[in-house]
């Protein structure tokens, strides 16, 4: 192919390749679609399986509460959470399978299925709702994605809910780090484009082969809720190891309560 070319031809070609490498090929990053980006983010956040130790600090207007828990999850449709601390909540367990959620309260020794009416109530007093925990996979199915911009090391992806999607948001803008394909800042807007909620993911750490944000900060933006925040810190995480299916049964709620 290169027979018969003179040195100047080679130089020209080298120059072209260099030009392409410098300017054109990075542009091909745009060819990576918003959908692909989000899919990567989802798989990074959820992993095949995950076992994590978490602490959650809820800052209210008057008081601050701290909780410690352990979570087991398999993909994004099954997860099991044990509350470890404080003492009065110790032993409470949660099970989520697809769109349903169950809770076990040791004090009354009862397993309750969270009904629709409780879905939007706050989870354990935090700024997260039950619904938030249940709908972790909805990003994949319920939204159309569009790449808005590339700023420094971040992609800005806009997610718009489909007509049929049963989600309350009008729009979500997610900042995705190019380096890790993890979310950095996620902004949640209502239908009138008012900012309702801000999620900030920081302190990415390596866990085995995976990188994961260990600090998640949830900041409500509604005027009456300004000043409150929920901070989740992951102290320990093990990904993609086998987890017994027994964790994802209703029996598990009681069995692993303590």
């Amino acid at each position: 192919m290169f027979f018969g070319y003179t040195k100047s031809h080679v130089q020209a070609e080298l120059f072209c390749i260099a030009f392409l490498l410098t300017f054109v090929f990075p542009l091909s990053a745009f060819a990576e679609t918003a959908v692909e980006i989000i899919n990567k983010v989802q798989s990074n956040l959820n992993g095949k399986t995950a076992v994590m130790n978490l602490s959650m600090v809820v800052k209210g207007k008057r008081a601050t509460r701290t909780m410690k828990m352990k979570s087991y999850s398999c993909g994004d449709d099954k997860s099991f959470i044990q509350i470890l601390y404080p003492g009065k909540d110790r032993g409470i367990t949660f099970l989520k399978i697809d769109n349903s959620m169950w809770q076990y309260v040791p004090r009354i020794e009862k397993i309750i299925k969270i009904p629709a009416s409780m879905m939007l109530q706050s989870w354990m007093g935090s700024d997260f709702t039950n619904d938030d925990l249940v709908k972790t996979n909805s990003l994949t199915d319920d939204y159309t994605k569009q790449l808005l911009a590339e700023i420094d090391q971040e992609y800005q992806v806009e997610l718009l809910p489909t007509e049929e999607a049963a989600v309350v948001w009008g729009r979500i803008v997610m900042g995705v780090s190019k380096q890790f394909y993890l979310p950095t800042t996620v902004l949640y807007y209502d239908e009138d484009d008012t900012l309702i909620r801000k999620m900030i993911y920081t302190d990415v750490q390596p866990f085995g082969e995976k990188y994961y944000p260990t600090k998640w900060l949830m900041l409500p933006q509604e005027p009456e809720k300004i000043g409150k925040e929920t901070m989740v810190e992951i102290s320990n995480a093990v990904f993609d190891e086998d987890i017994s299916e027994s964790y994802f049964t209703k029996r598990a709620l009681k069995r692993y309560s303590n």
Partner: peptide, 19 residues
């Protein structure tokens, strides 16, 4: 024209939603 999300427990006991 506002969007509302309606959720309820269906006849199988599952929580179902619609926009």
């Amino acid at each position: 024209g506002s969007k509302i999300i309606l959720s309820a427990q269906d006849s199988h006991g599952e929580v179902s939603s619609v926009s």
